[in-house]
């Protein structure tokens, strides 16, 4: 894998090209977390496992290490090795593994 200097754009070019779009995405996440607190039945006592995984992913984004996209996907991945016999006994894919953030 080629990580360092692999994007042809300069740092300033990347900021100019993409900043506003990602500013908006951060605001979406912030508003989503606010919305959970404003839920009609009140905020949950314990986070849904998907929300817990999302909060863990957000921490990972600011830990200073690289390969964030890969590490977020790894964090959200099913790490079990067992296979159900059929889809009837399989859980619906929900975007995060229940083990994460528990």
């Amino acid at each position: 894998m080629n990580y360092d200097a692999s994007c042809p754009l300069t740092y300033a070019d990347i900021v100019d090209a993409y900043f506003l779009e990602h500013r908006a995405k951060v605001l979406d996440i912030a508003a989503f977390l606010d919305r959970l607190e404003r839920a009609a039945d009140g905020p949950a006592e314990k986070d849904d496992f998907r929300v817990a995984a999302l909060r863990e992913a957000l921490l990972l984004l600011s830990d200073g290490d690289g390969e964030r996209a890969k590490r977020v996907l790894d964090l959200l991945s099913d790490a079990t090795e067992t296979m159900p016999q059929s889809a009837a006994n399989a859980k619906f894919a929900l975007g995060a593994a229940p083990e994460v953030g528990q």
Binding site: L76, S77, D78, A79, T80, M83, A93, L94, G95, A96
Partner: peptide, 13 residues
């Protein structure tokens, strides 16, 4: 390959 949390496991199998 599967699309969500099951992708990495499925891809390996």
């Amino acid at each position: 390959t599967p699309h969500l949390e099951d992708k990495r496991k499925g891809t390996r199998i």
